[in-house]
């Protein structure tokens, strides 16, 4: 699946600050700030989707064209 058109999105109000996405991001794209996830360096993101897969609260995901058509 082409990941070109998707981008990383955060729905902050759903984030409970568990840090799972931050720790298991293979490229260390994410950080925690005030107990909410934030994108630290989007350039490093390889759009692997592991953050979305393991977010217990559906607060982070790859959005955009491909995802919408999924």
């Amino acid at each position: 699946m082409s990941r070109n058109n998707v981008d990383l999105r955060i729905k902050e109000e759903l984030c409970k600050g568990c840090r799972i996405c931050v720790e298991f991001c293979p490229k260390k794209v994410l950080i925690m700030k005030n107990e909410k996830v934030k994108i630290d360096d989007i350039e490093k993101c390889i759009k692997c989707g592991l953050c979305e897969l393991r977010c217990p609260d559906y607060a982070i995901y790859l959005g955009g064209n491909d995802n919408e058509k999924q």
């Binding site: 409970k16 840090r19 799972i20 393991r54 977010c55 217990p56 609260d57 559906y58």
Partner: peptide, 9 residues
């Protein structure tokens, strides 16, 4: 569910 609960995943 609590923060970090595996159930959501």
């Amino acid at each position: 569910w609590c923060p970090g609960c595996g159930h959501g995943i």
